[in-house]
């Protein structure tokens, strides 16, 4: 059996099936939904950081833009939710296109510029001068499309597609070439790889994923403010979850989300600052002692981790 098929059958399929069945046996629907959203976002970060090497501190910009893309479609054009979700994805891609010049920057420069870009989009959306379009800082209410069950299914579909995308990256020469670009762009060009094209494709793919997730999030919660959907916590959580598990793998970000977001929900909601403290220490410990994530515990022993 080719390894791509094996990964789809033994990683993606069981995860999606379990998440599809869980709402029937577990009461906290919102929590399950958030798990799915973070699984999507962590894989989105995996595509752009793990495979391409760009650390997207402003990843939430695409998510928030997607949420507002959804809201504007529903509020102003009375679009059906599914159409609005697709538009949300396209809004993410459009923002990604607008920000492609940032890919000229490397390392910290890219990370900070991306963070600044996401904050700029937040302040644009939340600007009272744009109230007629975005409702500014006053938030949107989309009761007409409110349907958590459908939104949950849509999230599972996007998760499945995202995982399929990562399985492709892990098993294709395309994914290998992306990693080559990450390691050394000059040597990659001298291997015949079109460095700019590869980076842009990965960037837009990860923007699409976050835009779709943002649209579905807007669909699910239906009432939100700019500060909710542009909260830096989305970027941070997605990055930390992906790093904790181990990037440039399929399973790493999944393991990261399940363990860390699980812990978060045990101790998180009543005292957020304690969780912040724990994940701050966790990040530091990770960088100092386990920079390649949990999966490196296995790879160090010579085990192959998909």
């Amino acid at each position: 059996m080719p390894s791509a098929l094996r990964h789809l059958l033994f990683i993606m399929a069981p995860l999606v099936v379990v998440l599809a069945v869980l709402p029937g046996v577990y009461q906290n629907h919102l929590l399950l939904f958030n798990f799915v959203i973070f699984l999507i976002l962590a894989q989105g970060v995996n595509i752009i950081y793990g495979f391409t090497g760009y650390l997207p501190f402003g990843y939430v910009g695409f998510f928030g833009a997607g949420a507002y893309g959804f809201a504007i479609m529903v509020m102003h054009l009375q679009a059906p939710a599914v159409v609005a979700v697709v538009v949300a994805g396209l809004v993410g891609v459009a923002l990604g296109l607008l920000l492609t010049p940032l890919l000229r920057l490397s390392g910290a420069y890219f990370a900070i510029a991306n963070l600044a870009a996401s904050l700029a989009v937040l302040h644009l959306v939340a600007n009272p001068a744009l109230e007629s379009i975005t409702k500014g800082p006053y938030g949107v209410s989309l009761t007409g499309t409110f349907n958590p069950n459908s939104a949950y299914i849509a999230a599972l579909v996007v998760l499945a597609l995202t995982l399929a995308g990562v399985v492709y990256l892990k098993n294709s020469s395309f994914g290998l070439a992306l990693q080559a670009v990450r390691e050394d762009s000059v040597s990659a060009a001298m291997s015949g790889v079109s460095v700019v094209k590869m980076r842009v494709i990965a960037w837009l793919a990860s923007a699409l994923v976050a835009g779709l997730a943002g649209g579905i999030y807007a669909w699910y919660v239906s009432v939100f403010y700019p500060d909710n959907v542009f909260s830096g916590d989305f970027s941070i959580f997605a990055i930390v979850f992906a790093l904790f598990g181990g990037v440039a793998t399929i399973t790493g970000p999944i393991v990261g989300v399940i363990i860390l977001y699980g812990i978060y929900n045990v101790i998180g909601f009543t005292t957020p600052q304690y969780f912040q403290l724990i994940y701050g220490l966790l990040i530091m410990g990770l960088v100092l002692f386990l920079p390649a994530g949990l999966v490196s515990l296995a790879t160090r022993r010579g085990w192959h981790v998909p």
Partner: peptide
């Protein structure tokens, strides 16, 4: 094609994968 005075192979990829990139995209 060329080689570099200070070569910078794709460090975290295996030797075989290094060559595979050039084979696939060259």
């Amino acid at each position: 094609n060329r080689t570099f005075q200070v070569p910078k192979p794709f460090m975290s990829l295996t030797v075989r994968e290094n060559i595979k990139v050039a084979l696939s995209y060259g």
